[in-house]
Computed example of a mutant assay.
Amino acid sequence: MSFSFVREQMVDPAPAPVNTAGPVAWARRNLFATPSDSLLTILALVLLIWAIPPIYGFVMPNFLGGDAVPPGGTVEECRLETAGACWAYISARMSFFIYGFYPPAEYWRPNLVFALGALLIVPLLIPRVPFKRTNAILFFVVYPVICFYLLNGGVLGMRPVPTEQWGGLLVTLIISLVGIICSIPIGILLALGRQSKLPIIKTLCIMFIELWRAVPLITVLFMASVMLPLFMPQGTTVDKLLRALVGVTLFSSAYLAEVVRGGLQALPRGQYEAASSLGLSYWKSMWFIILPQALKHVIPGIVNSFIALFKDTSLVSIVGIFDLLNTVQAASSDIDWSSPTQAITGYLFAGMVFWVFCFAMSRYSIWMERRLDTGHKG
């Protein structure tokens, strides 16, 4: 007797059990796994139910069921006791928030700077786009020169615009981009110098890093804007924005150096020995073998430093530079748009702008981590 059996028709796959797949299983696994998790989940839901309706009513325009005055509204609507956020005020003062005191007739110049920056940085951030070297040269070398002459003027018949008239989001982006771009090479060199076997170089790098990390950024900005001119020869002046750029860059590079040093120390000693066995010089081994691996390991720390730098640019408002936050504070004294929610709406707008840029950097870093993840997962 034969006990063999050959299936002639395949059975349709059965769905997964309800208790192992689907939203109910996800909630049970992530939100109600233990009694303490269940209690925290319930408390969070109660907090959201209590907080979301008033926040929604304050932020959303009236045509979406909220109490906020939409763009195009009137100041009289914003002055009502039941009015929420005055987005009409933000719309009316948007040019000031973006350009500061930049002459309105010259807005095309910062607009061109924004457009060129987006045109160059987007392909640079997408790995599959070709001509990366040419793109990098254009962005890191040519673009800053074009930006300087476009914004400052004085050439090709363009009206000179001193940096005292720059402001708003324009200045925030300038300080953050210059700080981020310039702090990367300085921070890497400081990290390599701190691991150097030459006592003089190692000591100088340690002293530089510890000095800048031992003082708050606001002290650096005050020193650069108030104290530095006192030590310079009489009649010598340095642009206030340039002083802030140098201070922010050096401050950020000290923190970035420690992040990069952590990545260098995390690499196995065998990587250094393998580079030496190939006969590579110190700089070639660092460029081709050590730094690519070290920087990949510390992407979260590097991006965290960039996000902190972008948010710390708001401190330049204390030394009289009209960044985004300072323009919002200055506009809150505009009596033409005076209302109970004027200041709150301005700060809410500034917070939303900072959140958009910081969230974009965070998501891009997560995407890069996943793309560069070459580890073997069991």
Rank of each mutant, 00 (worst) to 15 (best):
V248N: 02
L256S: 02
Q9P: 04
T20Q: 15
M158G: 02
P185T: 01
V75P: 09
P104Y: 03
A254H: 10
L169N: 13
I307Q: 12
P216K: 15
I181Y: 05
V178Q: 14
S252V: 05
Q265M: 13
V319M: 09
N135G: 14
N304W: 06
F349P: 06
V145F: 08
P54A: 00
F251W: 14
F139C: 03
G153N: 06
D323C: 11
I42R: 15
Y347E: 06
P229C: 10
V220K: 12
T82N: 00
F208M: 07
L151F: 08
V259M: 06
T82R: 00
G167K: 05
C182D: 12
P70Q: 01
I201G: 06
Y282G: 07
I180S: 07
W367Q: 05
I121N: 03
S317V: 01
A68Y: 00
A88P: 01
M10D: 14
I218R: 14
N326L: 08
V142S: 14
T219W: 08
L264K: 08
P130H: 11
F288L: 07
L192H: 11
W212G: 08
P104V: 07
V298H: 08
R194G: 10
F5C: 05
L190A: 14
Y282S: 12
L230I: 02
D12K: 12
G351C: 09
G22Y: 02
L169M: 15
A224Y: 05
T82M: 00
S333G: 13
V6W: 03
N30R: 15
P17S: 08
G279Y: 06
G153C: 02
V141L: 14
A330C: 06
V246S: 00
A16I: 01
A14F: 06
S314G: 14
I121T: 07
A85L: 01
L309Y: 04
C205Y: 07
H297C: 07
I175Q: 08
A331T: 14
V319H: 13
L119H: 02
R7Q: 09
Q9W: 04
Y102I: 03
G153F: 02
S276K: 13
D239Y: 08
T134K: 12
N135F: 05
D336I: 00
T237G: 13
P216H: 11
E164R: 15
R128E: 03
S91Q: 07
L325F: 09
I175T: 10
P53F: 04
P35C: 08
Q165Y: 11
L138Y: 06
D373G: 10
P229V: 01
P185V: 00
V6C: 00
E273D: 11
L192A: 12
I181N: 07
F32E: 07
P292L: 02
W212M: 10
F349G: 02
P127K: 05
C205M: 09
L190I: 09
W355C: 02
D37Y: 08
V141P: 09
A21Y: 03
L190P: 10
A257R: 11
I180P: 02
L198K: 10
M227A: 15
